[in-house]
Design a protein around this nucleic acid. Structure first.
Lengths: 221, 221
DNA sequence: CCCCTGGTTACGGTTTGCCGTAATAAAAAT
DNA sequence: ATTTTTATTACGGCAAACCGTAACCAGGGG
């Protein structure tokens, strides 16, 4: 069961609503913090007193308002907390973040649930809490869909190299020189053009810009 | 006095907390909506019944979740509402938005108060409400500061339109037609080229791809 | 040895984007 | 009202990207 929860969220609006949701869900004890350092201190203290938290609900990005902090964002907080209390459950509550990033967090078992701040986020949070209390993770389907869409195409190392170079400001006709320099096998301008053409075709993009944005969002850069 | 308030906010978390804040402030009557159309309908009805709202609290960006809407964002909502009830007070409650945009809204008297979803947003909302009830506007000082020290490039609506179109797969020579179609003022290919050139220059990008990725990461698309 | 096949490279033509300059329109200032 | 300033548009040359075709070069089988 989830009896003791700590909320780390800098926005008062969100923090308040999460608290209210905890009340609705009859969570026995919940505390909240507006700063990562504060949340960490509370978790550390509870741990020392032998009354550890069951669940950490945290935002990912925290605004820097001038007060100096050791821990600056949600990911740092999660890692710091897991270092002293590996068993704690972690639920991420985030505004807009890249699907891949979230996905990676799941893959590395750094988080157990993810709720996006959006329409129906309260419902989502309740569903997530429900899943967690049953020992399940909460990985929203929409996220899987987004990832699936991004993962349809298999990018080769060659593809990624080209795209990375383009993103660094190389123009296509400068790339062959670079490839020869680094002994990468297809190195002709034709090959590069053909490859890009093929990728665009398969993914249904009309220009390289879309491709670059896509790769950026997919975390390939 | 502010006795009757309508809240338009798609995020449940935020909506809920605003409601709670209204309770704390002893506002006599408040209603809420998760969609612009719904908010507009409520305002229209109240107006017809001779019991109009005193204040509209609205987010700027509303997520499109598939349900078809006439009014798609906060600005459209504000303009639609002001068209039928010019006297209504308007308070914007927004996550991250360009300071200049907000500033312009104030300058054109389209809004009376602005609260950013951030640290202490509940306090800010209360302060804003207090100011409004005294017949004052609420223009947070932080906004003025942000405009002053924003040495990063300021994208105009025009810029964003172009970039959005490019990202949708338009090629540059197709854009003038679109702009004329939508009565956007500079519409020539030259203007587009010149603008893009200028932006790249100021931000130090070597090609459009980098610009697109930048804008994507900055959440401007 | 030749032929076939898959992949790479070379080349030419066309389109698109890039950038400077000049003409024109609109706005501001006098 | 006319000049000055500013913004927008039109045009042209050039570079880059796009795209098709054909030549080239492995290796594998006949």
């Amino acid at each position: 069961m989830i009896d003791k929860v700590i909320i780390a969220e800098d926005h008062e609006f969100a923090n308040l609503s999460v608290q209210k949701t905890m009340e609705d869900l009859k969570v026995k004890q919940y505390d909240y913090a507006f700063y990562c350092d504060d949340a960490f201190a509370k978790i550390q203290l509870a741990q020392k007193k032998g009354e550890p938290y069951d669940l950490l609900i945290t935002d990912l990005s925290f605004e820097d308002d001038g007060t100096p902090q050791q821990i600056h964002d949600g990911i740092e907080l999660i890692r710091a907390v897991r270092a002293i209390q590996p068993s704690i459950l972690v639920l991420i509550l985030s505004g807009q973040h890249r699907p891949v990033d979230i996905h990676n967090l799941f893959e590395h078992n750094e988080v157990d649930a993810y709720v996006r701040k959006a329409r129906h986020d309260v419902q989502e949070l309740k569903s997530a809490m429900h899943a967690l209390s049953k020992g399940q993770r909460y990985y929203p389907g929409s996220l899987a869909q987004q990832i699936k869409r991004s993962n349809t195409y298999e990018f080769t190392d060659f593809d990624i190299t080209i795209i990375r170079l383009l993103n660094e400001g190389y123009q296509q006709n400068e790339i062959p020189a670079y490839l020869k320099e680094h002994n990468i096998k297809p190195s002709s301008l034709s090959s590069i053009e053909k490859r890009l053409n093929q990728i665009r075709e398969e993914l249904g993009f009309l220009n390289n810009q879309q491709l670059m944005v896509f790769c950026s969002n997919a975390g390939l850069l």
